[in-house]
Amino acid sequence: MAGDQKAKAKAEQAKGKIKETTGRAVGNERMTAEGRMEKAKGDARQAKEKTKDIFKG
């Protein structure tokens, strides 16, 4: 289960980065903001999983 969540975090980070970059390239501030938000969500999920790993081991 933890590996599944880590993969989901990485996917969210990548999707957010792509969306942010695309938004910047086309001048769409809303898309850029949505990309930043998705990337931050992935970062938060990854941090949570790392914290869980620390307390498990």
Rank of each mutant, 00 (worst) to 15 (best):
M1L: 13
D4G: 00
D4M: 07
Q5Y: 00
Q5L: 06
K6V: 15
K6S: 06
K6N: 05
K6Y: 04
A7N: 10
A7S: 03
A9W: 08
A9V: 06
K10I: 01
A11M: 11
A11T: 09
A11Q: 14
A11F: 10
E12A: 09
E12W: 06
Q13C: 07
A14I: 04
A14R: 08
A14F: 08
A14P: 07
K15A: 13
G16N: 09
K17P: 07
K17I: 06
K17V: 00
I18K: 14
K19H: 00
K19Y: 00
E20H: 05
E20R: 10
T22C: 00
T22S: 05
G23V: 03
A25Y: 08
A25E: 12
A25I: 06
V26N: 11
V26F: 14
V26Q: 11
G27I: 05
G27W: 11
E29H: 08
E29C: 01
R30F: 00
M31F: 02
T32F: 08
T32L: 02
T32M: 05
T32E: 13
A33H: 12
E34Y: 01
E34A: 04
G35D: 05
G35R: 05
G35T: 06
R36G: 15
R36F: 03
E38Q: 00
K39A: 10
A40N: 10
A40M: 14
K41A: 07
K41I: 05
G42K: 02
D43H: 03
D43W: 00
A44T: 14
R45I: 00
R45Y: 03
R45P: 00
Q46N: 10
Q46L: 15
Q46I: 01
Q46R: 09
K48Y: 12
K48T: 12
K48V: 07
E49Y: 01
K50D: 13
K50H: 02
K50T: 01
K52Q: 15
K52W: 04
K52S: 13
D53Q: 14
D53F: 00
D53H: 07
I54P: 00
F55A: 08
F55D: 06
K56D: 08
K56Y: 05
G57A: 12
